[in-house]
Simulated scan of single mutants.
Amino acid sequence: MPMHLDQPLNARLVEDVGVGMEVKRDDNGKLDRKEIARVITRIVVEKNGMKVGNKAREVSEKITVKEVDEIDEMVEVVLQLCGKRK
């Protein structure tokens, strides 16, 4: 549920990527209980929610692998700076 600043844009991006669903606000900018319940039901109960969950896991795994690779690269750079490796 986006609250302010960059969060509405981030919510749309997360939905576009397929790893979440945005809870839309009403015309007055307020959150509606029925809309929150609808989104939760879609994620938890419906087949579409399974796709979102699977996509979120896939993206999470990719981020984890990328973080490990980047950490390894950074360790190598630090070792080079310390004169430990060439």
Rank of each mutant, 00 (worst) to 15 (best):
L79C: 02
G29Q: 06
M1C: 14
R33M: 09
R12V: 03
H4M: 04
D26Y: 11
P8T: 07
R12C: 00
T64I: 04
K34Y: 05
L9G: 06
L9Q: 09
Q80D: 04
G49V: 15
R25I: 05
N48W: 10
K86D: 07
R42A: 11
G18M: 13
R25E: 06
R38H: 13
E58N: 14
N28M: 02
I43G: 09
M1H: 15
I43F: 12
E15M: 12
M21Q: 14
N48K: 14
A11L: 13
C82G: 03
V52S: 12
V19Q: 05
E67M: 09
K86E: 05
E67N: 09
V17F: 11
E73W: 02
G83Q: 01
G83N: 00
V65E: 01
A56N: 10
V59T: 14
R42Y: 08
M74F: 04
V78A: 03
V65H: 04
D6R: 09
K66L: 03
D69L: 13
E76D: 02
G49D: 14
I43S: 12
P8G: 06
A37I: 08
H4D: 02
R38G: 15
M21F: 11
G29K: 09
L9N: 06
D26G: 12
K47L: 01
K66S: 02
L9W: 14
V17A: 08
